[in-house]
Design a protein around this nucleic acid. Structure first.
Lengths: 189, 189
DNA sequence: TAGCTTGTTGATCGTTGCTCAGCAAGCCGA
DNA sequence: TCGGCTTGCTGAGCAACGATCAACAAGCTA
């Protein structure tokens, strides 16, 4: 043979996670098989288990990567000043994220709530970080009650935006205004 | 042997679904194995496949049973007049349902959003029925926009109540008032 | 060239979803 | 009592998948 491609550990790891990210949108989390990932990477199953001790670890890594993408997309970009840093900006970017990466995002959310505790933990971490940033942006103290309300507001937003993208029953601006209105209602300043 | 217990088809079916309902709260949906169910029922795996063509069909049947329980609990009871028939009554009963059957309810919701399309369909049916009843109870027309909002409100309620049950950050009455307030805000009369 | 590190594989195992041929329990008519 | 029918039920076995392990080989360094 012409010699197998021998990659560095980091390279291989990144490649495998990347394949997971590409497969995630089209494949239900539970149907994503190690065999398929290994086949796409052109390696044996054994090697994947060398980098990730178990299937769960692999899924968790992929989920974490997806969360990082979302996170990076939600933060205000330094290059885009103006309405970037407020809550309105974050809501706007969130809707934009779902509009652009709808499949990936739904897979992320579903995979998170679907069974596996390790994956759910990654999702919970991301949500917690978002709550923290959200409350800070709103200039409100971070207590248990507000945390619950913000988390529930996320659930509301996720559900509504996911539906709205499929069937836009109102203008984009109205959706954003409605979300902002509900949030203000829940957390009066 | 003393002769195996030979049941009628309906009996056996009901027994298997019942075992699923009992196992659901303590076992993540994906870890629930046919072997375990068959063992608890004292039958062979083969027989379970005789009644349910596939694992999915079995899960769907169990999920449907759980949905029926929820549904029956949410409808106003004829014997309990007073505040039973309005939206407040339904919200009250929903909170009560989650308080009492928290584990089962979380398992129901998670199982619904976790991967399997057949199970998700059962969940979607239940939600649709609830939206219909909700809008009718509110005396509002049933259009696409309102449907989306009510569904998103369900997501909000599910999330908030699930958290609140674990850590009650406000009195029960305040929770109910808040839910009602948000609903009125979303669907002004 | 020898030797070490480490990326990589093939053989193999246990579990699990699923199939299939056939057994056996109960009921019926003669 | 006997034969025959329906149908609840089983056991052997297959394919797919997650996971393990001993061993090979690519590339660097001395």
């Amino acid at each position: 043979m012409t010699g197998r491609a021998r990659r560095s550990a980091d390279d291989r790891r990144a490649q495998l996670v990347q394949i997971g990210l590409e497969l995630l949108p089209t494949t239900p989390v539970q149907e994503l098989t190690i065999d398929e990932v290994a086949r796409r990477a052109g390696i044996s199953r054994s090697l994947l288990f060398h980098y990730f001790p178990s299937k769960r670890d692999y899924y968790a890594a992929v989920t974490r990567a997806a969360a990082e993408l979302l996170w990076a997309h939600l933060l205000p970009r330094p290059g885009t000043p103006g309405d970037g840093s407020g809550v309105d900006g974050m809501l706007d970017r969130y809707v934009g994220w779902v509009e652009t990466f709808r499949e990936t995002h739904l897979a992320f959310v579903r995979g998170a709530s679907g069974g596996d505790p390790w994956v759910a933990e990654v999702y919970a971490e991301t949500r917690d970080r978002l709550v923290e940033v959200g409350l800070r942006t709103l200039g409100l103290p971070d207590d248990a009650r507000r945390r619950q309300l913000v988390l529930a507001f996320f659930a509301f937003t996720e559900d509504l935006v996911a539906q709205w993208v499929l069937e836009p029953t109102m203008p984009r601006e109205e959706l954003l205004a409605l979300l902002r209105d509900v949030l203000d209602r829940l957390l009066p300043r």
